[in-house]
Design a protein around this nucleic acid. Structure first.
Lengths: 192, 192
DNA sequence: CATTGTAAAATGAACGTTCATTCATTTTAT
DNA sequence: ATAAAATGAATGAACGTTCATTTTACAATG
């Protein structure tokens, strides 16, 4: 045990503060001083853990992306059915986006701006291999459309980010029914 | 005719410069001085046309969104077939995104960050009415899934932005074949 | 157990830079 | 000659980053 009530690592607090501030104000309006204040540390302390603001953003991105990928394949065991396997992964991803809203919004923002180094972006993509493998298996069996994985991703995973954005802006509430409908739409779009 | 070779209005030049700079560096790294330089005017001149940087961004957003909506319904005439009508609009939108790449990338960035006022966002959405009407018609006839228009948008229009982003980052080339496949995937996802 | 020595961690004022914005002046158009 | 348009140096605020100083953590010592 340590001294302060909720001391759990300043680095983690900084990561959380960064996500929250970038979500609510955007990268351009998330100054280091505010991030520090929200994390409950002083401005200078950030530089014990991160080299620069760019480094901070990149590392937060990688950390969140890693958590996302880990969620995607939680309890994933290949069965014989491509559809079963896809359903498993898709719902894992949907669960992540609906439960870790802050993290998911942060990723959606990063993926659509030049905020992140191309190198970090590549690195963040690496962990999605099992999903690509599954798609190839489905294509080999003639179940899934013989198109680029980018198209498959665009029509199955990417739409969830849109729904989340709309929900966050108060236009739309995502009910369990709609999650199920969304899954069916995803599956229908990529199958032959 | 005016004096300079390519003088066509400084306001238009400023809009173009803003789009280009925000695309390549993000809002946070698009200072007014650079925008002015790229537009070939002096920094102070911006303030003859726009009240502030926020106003500049909002108005560029609205202008691009208006051009987008106009494209979406170019030559659109309702037929008796929901599928025909949808195909028309979808391809109009895809054409816009593939031909006006800069404008489309700018919109994708705006739609995923807190860069734009919620008011301007609402305003930009207004012109999409005919598409929503078409969807309602399709739902009334039992052709289109009875789900929120947000879901329909997420699975038909939003994915195009992802493909464009990937193409722009050099991961992927969008061939005419893939556009056709993308259309089929969109249609399959929203029909019953 | 209390005291002390020491290195790591944290601080926040200060620094230099960059930014959005203004405005006295100049240029352009009529 | 006059008004509108454009300029770009000046301004003050805000930013990312640094660093001299203070605080904390804790092992060694008596």
């Amino acid at each position: 045990m340590s001294t302060t009530p909720k001391s759990k690592g300043k680095q983690a607090a900084l990561v959380r503060a960064t996500i929250s501030l970038v979500n609510n104000s955007g990268f351009h309006a998330a100054p280091m001083a505010k991030i520090a204040a929200l994390a409950g540390v002083s401005a200078g302390t950030i530089y014990r853990y991160f080299e620069s603001k760019q480094d901070l953003i990149n590392r937060v991105y990688l950390e969140v992306k890693a958590a996302f990928s880990a969620s995607a394949f939680r309890d994933y065991v290949e069965t014989d059915s491509v559809e079963e396997d896809f359903k498993q992964i898709w719902h894992n991803i949907a669960d992540f986006k609906l439960r870790q809203v802050e993290e998911a919004l942060f990723l959606s923002q990063c993926d659509n701006t030049p905020m992140i180094d191309e190198a970090s972006r590549q690195e963040g993509l690496r962990h999605l291999r099992p999903l690509l493998d599954l798609w190839e298996r489905g294509q080999a069996r003639g179940i899934i459309r013989p198109v680029s994985p980018y198209l498959l991703y665009a029509y199955t995973i990417y739409p969830i980010a849109f729904l989340l954005n709309m929900q966050e802006r108060g236009h739309h509430d995502i009910t369990p029914d709609q999650v199920e409908a969304a899954y069916q739409m995803a599956w229908n779009s990529i199958t032959i």
